[in-house]
Design a protein around this nucleic acid. Structure first.
Lengths: 193, 193
DNA sequence: CGAAAATTTGACATGACTCAACTGGAGTGG
DNA sequence: CCACTCCAGTTGAGTCATGTCAAATTTTCG
């Protein structure tokens, strides 16, 4: 019987593909839990991302940091989501992004080599990731369109509706960096309610 | 021996996964070519997208049209790329996007039902799409970041470098809708060289 | 409690938009 | 092959959303 921390991952897999108990156990055995404290950095720019990562509890963000020390938050992740610097993971190149815990969190990690071996043994798992990436692509595309077509105020309202569970754990300057505005301007927007 | 129009697809698959000759033939047999004239609409908002589509020749664009008749071009596709309204394809819901040929083009289409059957028979094909979507996600994420972090002028220059082959086939108002600026402002940028 | 970090506030600057008028070129029908 | 139309592109004036910078205030946390 797997530990409680694996339950969200089991659910995540089972709601997407059908997989035997035996195969599932094999998969879970390759994931290691990692506990993160608030603000802890899971992956830094320059690191090579060697793991796929699933959020078993808590929340994280992925951000880019440019030469002028400006942050661009490109993704929030909450319990049940996957996070990674996928470019680094796929190409073995140094990461361009940081991944940071927004609150105390637990991620389940699987090494690239283990996952690729499992893909050969368990077609359902490969299907699982194929479907996950299809959906992730659709979600990102929609987010990109919203970003382009909505005003900063509308984007903020949409953000609040979507992330009401974790909003209070996220500093405003991080929200601003996700919305693509300055912290000062977010402050102005908030005062206009 | 498959017809010439299938060559780009064969190459696209073979450079990503290893697949037997026999399996490949089975896959190709499910794709139907469709010839498009310039400006022809391949998929309209409201249609249900029932096919995966590969560009065997020419170029297309995917765009969103809002109530105020403003266009947002979210993707250009050239020979060797895949285009779709993936949301509609995956969910059987009406499309939100239009797909239009920028010049005379040929696409190879496979019906969702055929593709899903092939996934059961040919694990390499499922792997192919898993890898394609991983890469598509990375590319879209990078594009989204560029969009957020670069000025309109820099985005335009980047666009020109990336799409120099098809730039002359794309009206300026379409380029503007891809860059996220008005046609008037693009005109100003161009006069500043 | 104190220092550092986050947020707010305000004055001013600017990149990009809107609207309207004008220009030019590509297609179309006679 | 001309004349006409129409759509794409340009130009300019005025405006607005959002940015920049700096100072004041509040919150967080060691």
């Amino acid at each position: 019987m797997p530990e409680k921390v694996y339950q969200p991952l089991i659910q995540n897999i089972r709601e997407t593909v059908s997989i035997s108990e035996q195969e599932l156990m094999l998969v879970l055995a390759s994931f290691q839990p990692k506990v993160l404290s608030k603000k802890e950095i899971l992956l830094q720019k320059g690191d090579i991302s060697n793991h796929m990562r699933f959020i078993a509890d808590g929340s994280l963000r992925v951000y880019y940091l440019n030469e002028k020390a400006q942050e661009y938050t490109i993704q929030f992740g909450i319990k049940g989501w996957w996070v990674n610097d996928l470019y680094s993971y796929l190409t073995h190149q140094p990461a361009n992004y940081f991944i940071q815990a927004l609150q105390p969190s637990v991620v389940l990690q699987i090494h690239r080599d283990s996952l690729n071996k499992l893909f050969d043994q368990i077609p359902s798992l490969e299907r699982f990731f194929r479907i996950k990436f299809e959906k992730a692509y659709v979600a990102l595309q929609e987010r990109t369109l919203h970003r382009a077509s909505l005003s900063a105020k509308d984007r903020y309202e949409q953000f609040r509706a979507q992330y009401k569970d974790i909003e209070q754990n996220i500093p405003q300057y991080v929200i601003a960096s996700y919305l693509g505005i300055t912290p000062e301007f977010l402050s102005v927007l908030r005062s206009q309610e």
